[in-house]
């Protein structure tokens, strides 16, 4: 049996009295793209944010069950959250580069870790920008503000910034919903390339996007993981009536 890189076991999550995730047990395969789909408020983004513990920032978050990364519970009492977040990178819905130079954006993660010298940082910045298909566009203006980039470039910069930490897993929270179609397809193609080096989890409202790029589909509804399976199967013959209804646009 192939062990999953991420595995949730009977994961439940509450915001105050609001029970957001119900008994989610899901495995994520290494170096594949898993798309999480479902109607708004189904808990897919919340589930994504449990993988790098970003939900911790919200007051009164409670969790039961387990989230395993490489077999280790990331919610165990002595878990190092900052270390976890360097292993599990994240890109957000709206491109959010810091109001700093392009270089300093990408170097940020390494700078806060404080264990790299200048030349290591420079090398990694270049590699990350290349991996995010941005190097040729920015190599002559690394010291310019990241805010001078276009929306699509900013989002790729955010991907490069996450990659600079050498993560095992990359979480993408609706990464293209604020972008135009061209930038969107560029990022989709980039994802297909990146899955050679990282495991990708992507939350998307765009069913077609999930179809185009994912290897696995997790369909969430009302905080439950309704269906999980290979995209080829889920998109042609879904097992659950609710998945069928969502994919055919009956609700959502």
């Amino acid at each position: 049996m192939v062990t999953n890189q991420i595995q949730t076991l009977k994961l439940n999550l509450w915001f105050g009295n609001n029970h957001v995730l119900h008994d989610v047990s899901m495995g994520v395969t290494e170096k594949k793209i898993t798309a999480m789909i479902g109607p708004s408020g189904c808990g897919k983004s919340t589930l994504l944010r449990t993988f790098n513990r970003m939900n911790d920032l919200i007051d009164e978050t409670r969790i039961s069950g387990k989230v395993l990364l490489d077999g280790e519970d990331i919610y165990r009492s002595k878990a190092d959250v900052t270390n976890l977040r360097t292993r599990v990178g994240m890109v957000f819905q709206k491109p959010n580069p810091f109001p700093k130079s392009i270089f300093n954006n990408v170097a940020f993660g390494m700078a806060v870790q404080g264990k790299f010298n200048r030349s290591q940082i420079e090398d990694r910045v270049e590699k990350s920008l290349r991996d995010a298909w941005l190097w040729d566009e920015v190599k002559d203006r690394l010291n310019e503000s990241a805010m001078s980039l276009s929306g699509g470039q900013q989002q790729r910069l955010c991907i490069a910034r996450a990659l600079a930490n050498n993560p095992e897993v990359l979480l993408l929270d609706e990464p293209t919903s604020a972008l135009d179609p061209q930038s969107t397809s560029k990022i989709e193609e980039l994802c297909l390339e990146l899955k050679n080096m990282v495991t990708i989890l992507i939350v998307t409202h765009n069913i077609a996007q999930a179809g185009r790029i994912s290897d696995y589909i997790a369909f969430m509804y009302l905080g439950e993981l309704v269906e999980f399976g290979e995209t080829n199967k889920v998109f042609t013959v879904p097992q659950d009536k609710r998945t069928e209804a969502y994919l055919t646009g009956v609700f959502g």
Binding site: A208, G211, R212, N232, F235
Partner: peptide, 12 residues
């Protein structure tokens, strides 16, 4: 046949 169905389902 399988490939055709999957392509149509996933890529419209």
């Amino acid at each position: 046949e399988d490939d055709c169905i999957v392509l149509m389902a996933r890529h419209h």
